[in-house]
Computed example of a mutant assay.
Amino acid sequence: MQDARICLWRNDDALEVATFYTELFDDAEIQEVRPAVRPEDADLPAGRGVGVTVDFRVGPLLMQTLNGGDDRDYDESMSVAIITEDQAETDRVWEALIADGGREDGAGGASTATACAGRSSRER
Rank of each mutant, 00 (worst) to 15 (best):
D70M: 13
F25H: 08
P60A: 12
E85T: 14
S79E: 10
A107V: 04
A46H: 14
A28C: 10
E23S: 15
L66G: 05
A14Q: 05
T65W: 07
S77N: 07
A96I: 01
R5M: 11
G51V: 05
D43I: 02
F20I: 05
I30K: 10
G108A: 00
I82L: 01
D13G: 01
A96C: 02
R92T: 04
G109D: 00
Q31Y: 12
D26K: 11
V93Y: 11
G69Q: 01
L24S: 10
E89K: 06
G51F: 04
E23N: 15
L15E: 07
W9I: 06
R48E: 12
S79F: 12
Q87G: 02
R48A: 07
G102H: 01
E89R: 08
A81R: 05
E29K: 10
D12E: 10
A18C: 09
E16A: 13
R92L: 05
F20H: 11
R38P: 00
E23R: 14
I6S: 09
Q87Y: 01
D105G: 02
V58H: 09
L15P: 10
C7M: 12
V33L: 09
L8T: 08
G51E: 02
R10V: 09
N67M: 04
Q87N: 02
I83C: 07
S77D: 03
L24V: 10
V33F: 13
G47M: 14
A36Q: 00
A96M: 02
R103L: 11
A14G: 09
G109Q: 00
D105N: 01
Q31H: 12
G69C: 04
D43G: 12
E40D: 07
G68E: 03
E95R: 10
